[in-house]
């Protein structure tokens, strides 16, 4: 546990290389989108980070169930790691989306279902960390965070539907959200290449950070345990 495993060191390096390569592909190789101009290039990172963050959040909910069934603190450590890395990636997603929205939709932010749900989900997982901070007992902390992560994960889809009640027909945004999927700009060969490479790169980077964070959690658990022992 103390020594960083070689595989992780290699993964660190691979992640850095992949990040640079993905940046290169998005900026220099992918052709420029004609309508939106260069800013469209952040789209590759936007989707890449969103993809891993959402997988991370779904994984988190599954970990809640596993933890509550087994009550093994190992799953709690894995969950914190997943939540933390996902929150970081999702923050990048939201910021990039906002930067893209400014020239494309002429506003930094609109209250459309996706954006609002993203903001609410991010707040749920920030609240998750505030909950953890207020608890010292590792078992109680793990119980509570598993419960909260599960509730938060379940509420996210309902939140998405509930916002559709409100800002339904926002024409610009609807065109915009479709553009994210495939709509208003169709991806040519170079774009697809950059897109899939970014997805791959961010998946690897996520795994790398996730692994590092799990090791950090293990060290934290060890220190907590030693502190308790030292107190006696």
């Amino acid at each position: 546990m103390n020594k960083k495993p070689l595989a992780l060191k290699i993964l660190d390096l691979v992640s850095i290389v992949l990040l640079i390569a993905a940046t290169y592909l998005s900026i220099f190789v992918a052709p420029m989108e004609r309508v939106m101009g260069n800013v469209q290039r952040v789209f590759y990172f936007h989707v890449g980070t969103a993809w891993v963050a959402l997988i991370g959040f779904i994984f988190t909910a599954a970990l809640s169930v596993i933890y509550l069934a087994t009550k093994n603190l190992k799953w709690d450590r894995i969950q914190v790691a997943a939540v933390e890395v996902s929150v970081v990636f999702f923050l990048i997603t939201i910021i990039l989306g906002s930067i893209w929205a400014r020239p494309a939709w002429n506003t930094w932010w609109t209250w459309d279902p996706r954006l609002t749900t993203a903001a609410v989900v991010e707040l749920v997982y920030i609240a998750y960390f505030m909950l953890r901070q207020g608890l010292d007992d590792p078992n109680k902390r793990a119980n509570f965070s598993a419960v909260y992560a599960l509730i938060g994960g379940l509420s996210a889809p309902i939140t998405f539907f509930s916002i559709r009640l409100f800002r339904t027909i926002h024409p610009v945004v609807i065109a915009g959200t479709n553009a994210e999927a495939e709509g208003s700009f169709s991806m040519s060969g170079g774009m697809l290449q950059a897109f899939f490479f970014a997805l791959f790169a961010f998946t690897v980077i996520f795994i790398d950070l996730f692994w590092n964070r799990i090791r950090l959690g293990e060290a934290q658990a060890k220190v907590e345990e030693m502190k308790i022992n030292a107190a006696y």
């Binding site: 800013v39 952040v42 890395v85 910021i95 990039l96």
Partner: peptide
Amino acid sequence: TPDTSSYMIAGFAITFLVLAAYV
């Protein structure tokens, strides 16, 4: 095509900044 390069640069810069801060 509008020139939106500054937004692009800002986007990538912030991405790297956030990642670097996290690391």
